[in-house]
Each structure stands twice: as structure tokens, then as C-alpha cells.
Design a protein around this nucleic acid. Structure first.
Length: 459
RNA sequence: UCCCCGGUAGCUCAAUCGGCAGAGCGGGUGACUGUUAAUCACCAUGUUGGCGGUUCAAGUCCGUCCCGGGGAGCCA
């Protein structure tokens, strides 16, 4: 018999005589004549109530089917006489697939803290909250691909291993094929290493995506990035996934539009496909979640100039720890004020002072700002950073020298400006931060299945 | 990396001034004719994060390390 998923069973339109359900026991309630099992199989946040009469042959198996056990039940899907559920499964045959000793099984039929669940990351897929987060993450990931596919972008795989050590995005992980013992003995010699040069894990696929866009037109990457920053915050991970579109012949305005549309598209998809999970997360993670997601889906992105942002901050009543003036980078306190209090919505800040942004952002006509932008989210902070890219060879070379970067290390990147240089623009979106926004979880380590952070490499 | 807070039963937490280590939930056993955070009765929870120190006496004070949380910086 083919397995019926719990999510489908609880939405049945009619009774069914022969149904097979397989799942994990969330709770069991027993009285003298009858046992009740609630099963979840990951198909959604719902559980299906299974009724096992005590005189059923094989009811003994139920004795061992405590919270956490895997069971297989065949029976009839019938209207439930009890309150709290429409349908229930009247069991004809119950088989225990795998017991879970309740004395030691860590998950209980009660609410656990995020910290505890994180310490049993291999089992937390079976929890209500983390199960919902996992499903939302999957829906969001597939929505990314659907969004770009609808717009005729090419999906691009960029290298994980890289030799460029100064993309300006934090500390890099060093990679070597040499034995640590040998290095300790003889010192490290890049020439004798696997690639014959110093090797790192990528911090971004951007430079490669630029090359691809300047030929394919419009591309996006969706892959892992690595930062060896020893940053211990709820918003940073050492390994995370990034979505990086890059579009030829596009300017700042178009790429900001694209970021806003992407955000709206994914939010809408999650709302329509994962309603029950969003409802659950609204109860367990953040009460305001549904309303917030709906407002983003319907209203999209606010946008304002960096200069306006500075004026808003200067004119606010707030006392700032870090001073606000044209030329200062926006601190976390400023970003939070803009997104959480002033606009109460996602906001894109455009055209930052050139001194505080990387070399590849295109210099504006005013010669003091660059065509870059950040998208700030309430509670999550910066989720997108992007720009129109500097396509003028001389300007790019000058900017690199100004920022202490040797143009000789970027000959291939400069070639894109030497031959058929075209305006182009792109951005990077932190996928886990997006998942935080979509689910209301407060820590990035709960937005990715097996988080990696400094001092943490479990599983 | 810096600042602040924390680490006690499986989980969440309490323990006054340094003086017998506790509760709720979870678990076990039994009862109960359909429960749904089931209910009722009884039972057991332990290297108080590790190491060292002060003291007659340390969960409590001191040092140090580890881990977790919050904030900051860096950024996605």
C-alpha cells in the first residue's frame, strides 16, 4: 500500500477505508481500553491522531511507541468523534519500526529552548519549530530558482576554492593540501602546495558572476560562502549561503528593483505554500510574523538616498552612540532605527560615500558617492549589499590603488573592462538572514541545519 | 576579538548572609470506557561546566579555562 502523508490525511475530503501512515510519535495517551498516538511525518506541522484499541493484536507494540518512536499504521481514515481534529486513523495494524527509549530520548512533548535544540541539531528536525523552519527554508530556496528562471537568468556555479585573497569581505579560510606536520617542520611554501599558490575558500561569487554576466547577460549564483571572522553574533555564520545575481546593461535603479522584486516574490511564495508553518511560527517564534510578511509582500521595499538617511537620523530625537554625519558608515543602531522604527519595513539605502565602500562599486558623477546599496530588514539588519559595478578601466584601477589593492592581482577582472566593457550591476543576498526574516527565528544558527561558527563544527 | 549576563536533575529554573540541593515539566509504576499540554496516586532523579585556591564548611567567595546567551565591531 502506498504511504499517505499526514499533511494530506488531515485535509482529506472523505473517509477512506485503507490508509497507510508512517511517521514519528509526537505524543501517546493511553487509557484502559484505547491508545491515542499523534503522528508527524514531516510533511507539514500537522499531526494525525491514531486510535488503537487495546484488544487489537499488535497493540503491544504501542506500549513501546513513546514519543520519538517510528511507527507504521494501517487502518481506516474516519471522522473523529473527539474534538480537536476532523479526521483520525482507526488502526487495524500497528508496527513499531524503531523504538525511542523515553528514558534517554532528548525531545519531550513540551516546548524546548532554541539553545537546547541547537545542541541536538541532528534531532531537531523532529521539533515543531525547527521542522517549520526547514520547510520554509526549502520553499524559499526553490523560490529563488523559480524567480530567476521566470526572468530568463542563467544559473551559474562559481568556484568554492579561490586564489583571490582581497575581495574585501572579511577574513578568509586558508586551504592547503599539505600535512600540518610538514608545515610545522618546514614552514609553508605555497609553491609546493596543491595549486602552487595560496588558496582560500570563497567569500563571494561576485567577481566570477561579473565575468559570466558580461557574456551571458544575466546570471545568478546560489552557493556557499565562507568567512573566518571570529564574530560571535546571532547574525553571523562562518559558512552561509548567498544569492548573487549579476546583470549586464543594468544600473543601480534596476538592480535595486530586482532585489525588491526578489524579496516580494519569495515572501509571497512562502505565504502561499507554507501557510500552516507560518501560522505555527507565529505562535512559537514571533507573534507578528504573518502580518509582517503580508506587508512586505504587498508593499515591497522602501528606498531612500544615503544622504536622506543621514538627515533622518540627524533629525531624530535619539541619542546616538556613534555620530551621524555625511561620510559616516551607518552603524547597527542607525540601521535598526531606520528599518524598525522610522519605516517599519524593509528599506534600501542608496549611494553611499565612496570611502566606506569597496573598490568595485561605480563612482557617481558627484565623485564623492558610489552607486551601491544595502537592504535593511527589521530585526535582521543588513540582508542585501549590492551595486552598479565600475566598468571604466581607469577609474577602477585608480580606486584599487586608493584602497591599497594591487591591480596586478586582478588582471582577468580588469580584462572585463578592457574588452567590450559594459555597465552591469548585481547584489548579494544572505540566504540565512532571509530565512530568519521569513520565520522569525532570532539566531542565524537556527536558520541553517548544521551551523558553523567560530569554535563550532559539530555533525 | 571586546563588553555584559549565565552554566544546578533529561528540560526550564529556584536555593536568603558561605551552613541538610529543591520545584514544575519530562520519565517509571499503578489506576482510569474516547484522550488531545489527558487526569489521579505513588516512586527515582544530581561529578551544582572543568581544574586550582580561600574556609571548620563552597552551588554560593577568588583565579583560570571551556561552553551558552545578549550587545558591539566586521559583514550577507
Amino acid at each position: 500500500m502506498r504511504r499517505t502523508k499526514v499533511a494530506d490525511a488531515v485535509r482529506a475530503e472523505a473517509p477512506a477505508d485503507a490508509v497507510l501512515i508512517q511517521g514519528w510519535v509526537r505524543t501517546r495517551r493511553s487509557s484502559k481500553g484505547v491508545h491515542f498516538l499523534e503522528l508527524n511525518d514531516g510533511s507539514g506541522p500537522e499531526t494525525l491522531q491514531v486510535v488503537v484499541d487495546a484488544d487489537l493484536s499488535g497493540a503491544g507494540e504501542v506500549e513501546q511507541s513513546a514519543t520519538g518512536a517510528a511507527v507504521s499504521v494501517e487502518g481506516a481514515l474516519v471522522e473523529s468523534p473527539g474534538r480537536g481534529q476532523t479526521w483520525e486513523l482507526q488502526a487495524r495494524e500497528v508496527r513499531l519500526l524503531g523504538a525511542a527509549d523515553p528514558e534517554v530520548y532528548p525531545l519531550q512533548k513540551k516546548r524546548h529552548s532554541d539553545e537546547f535544540l541547537r545542541s541536538i541539531a541532528h534531532l531537531r528536525f523532529r521539533s515543531n519549530k525547527y521542522g517549520a523552519v526547514s520547510r520554509v527554508r526549502s520553499t524559499a530556496a526553490l523560490a529563488v530558482h523559480d524567480f530567476f528562471r521566470e526572468r530568463d537568468f542563467y544559473c551559474l556555479h562559481t568556484p568554492i576554492l579561490t586564489a583571490s585573497d582581497c575581495e574585501g569581505a572579511g577574513e578568509l579560510f586558508k586551504v592547503t593540501a599539505q600535512d600540518p606536520e610538514r608545515i610545522a617542520e618546514k614552514g609553508y611554501s605555497p609553491e609546493e602546495d596543491f595549486f602552487g599558490k595560496r588558496t582560500y575558500l570563497t567569500v563571494s561569487g561576485q567577481l566570477a558572476a561579473e565575468a559570466a554576466a558580461c557574456g551571458l547577460g544575466q546570471v545568478y549564483t546560489f552557493g556557499p560562502a565562507f568567512r573566518a571572522e571570529d564574530s560571535n553574533t546571532p547574525r553571523h555564520a562562518a559558512e552561509f549561503w548567498m544569492v548573487e545575481p549579476e546583470v549586464a546593461f543594468a544600473g543601480l535603479g534596476e538592480i535595486v528593483d530586482l532585489a525588491g522584486e526578489l524579496l516580494v516574490f519569495i515572501t509571497g511564495r512562502v505565504l502561499s505554500e507554507r501557510g500552516p508553518d507560518i501560522d505555527l511560527l507565529s505562535r512559537f517564534a514571533e507573534t507578528d510574523l504573518s502580518r509582517r510578511l503580508e506587508s512586505v509582500r504587498d508593499q515591497g521595499l522602501h528606498r531612500l538616498e544615503y544622504g536622506e538617511a543621514v538627515r533622518i537620523l540627524e533629525q531624530s530625537e535619539r541619542e546616538w552612540t556613534y555620530p551621524v554625519f555625511f561620510g559616516a558608515d551607518l552603524q547597527t543602531e542607525h540601521e535598526r532605527y531606520l528599518a524598525e522604527e522610522h519605516f517599519r519595513s524593509p528599506v534600501a539605502v542608496l549611494n553611499y560615500p565612496r570611502e566606506i565602500k569597496p573598490f568595485y562599486m561605480r563612482e557617481n558623477e558627484d565623485e564623492r558617492t558610489v552607486a551601491g546599496f544595502d537592504v535593511l530588514l527589521p530585526a535582521v539588519g543588513e540582508i542585501v549589499g549590492g551595486s552598479q559595478r565600475e566598468e571604466r578601466l581607469e577609474v577602477l584601477q585608480r580606486r584599487m590603488r586608493e584602497m591599497g589593492i594591487d591591480p596586478a592581482d586582478y588582471e582577468w577582472y580588469l580584462d572585463l573592462r578592457r574588452y567590450g566593457s559594459a555597465p552591469h550591476a548585481g547584489f548579494g543576498l544572505g540566504f540565512e538572514r532571509l530565512v530568519m526574516f521569513l520565520t522569525g527565528v532570532g539566531n542565524i544558527r537556527d536558520a541553517i541545519p548544521f551551523p558553523r561558527a567560530s569554535g563550532q563544527l559539530e555533525y
